[in-house]
Simulated scan of single mutants.
Amino acid sequence: MFTELCTKVFNQAITDFHLHNDVHRGIENPYNKADIEHLLYLKNWIDTVQWHLEDIIRDPNIDPVAALKLKRWIDKSNQERTDVVEYIDSYFLEKFKDVNVLPSATINTESPAWAIDRLSILALKIYHMREEATRQDASEEHRAVCQSKLDILLTQQVDLSTAIESLLQDIEGGRKYMKVYKQMKMYNDPSLNPVLYANKK
């Protein structure tokens, strides 16, 4: 199943990152650029780095200048994340381009790639909640609470994977159709963000 491939690649990216646990260390994508695994690995690597940036920026003692620099980094990461999601959707558009869409076909609330985006974040939640559930310097109560949360996350992973597989099967069978809306982010566009275009006057 496709979601099994996703989870395998996501877990690999998470493990690879935590070998050094360094947000400044560049990605070493082990997959060929022509393969979907390359995009999946890239997607989760971006998510993993951003996860740790979000931790760092919440340090109450962080220098304001450093915090602003991190905020700009996170903004850039969000844009890269969105770009990769669209590349993944392009993969599915190509894969299903010859499907005979049924007259009764309906559209889904989100595209396959945006559902896979949630699966990537979920893999990170599971990894870090498992760390907390087994953290030896934490209290037994803390570990128990985190184990309970981990159990829920694992159930959520199964449910989301099942839903994604069902969506892909419906698209392949012509029962649902893909309609991808490219990003309409305004705050990154100098012609649409009033703060940016006001400064150009």
Rank of each mutant, 00 (worst) to 15 (best):
T3N: 07
E4T: 02
K8H: 05
Q12F: 08
A13F: 14
I14W: 09
I14F: 07
I14H: 00
T15P: 07
D16Q: 13
D16L: 14
R25P: 10
P30T: 14
A34V: 03
L39M: 13
L42K: 12
I46Q: 13
I46H: 11
W51A: 07
H52F: 09
H52Y: 05
L53T: 06
L53S: 12
I57S: 07
P60V: 06
P60N: 06
I62D: 00
A66T: 15
A66E: 11
W73N: 11
S77A: 11
Q79T: 01
E86Q: 09
D89G: 12
F92W: 15
E94M: 14
E94G: 08
E94T: 15
F96A: 14
K97A: 15
D98N: 12
L102P: 02
L102C: 06
P103T: 09
S104A: 11
A105D: 00
A105I: 00
T106M: 10
I107T: 05
N108G: 11
I116P: 10
R118H: 14
S120N: 12
L122T: 00
L124D: 05
K125G: 01
I126V: 02
M129Q: 06
R135M: 06
R135L: 06
A138R: 08
S139V: 04
S139M: 12
E141I: 06
L150N: 03
L150E: 07
D151E: 13
I152A: 03
Q157I: 03
D159V: 15
A163D: 06
E165L: 04
L167M: 07
L168P: 02
E172Q: 14
G173L: 03
Y177F: 15
M178N: 00
P190R: 08
N193W: 13
L196T: 11
L196H: 00
Y197Q: 10
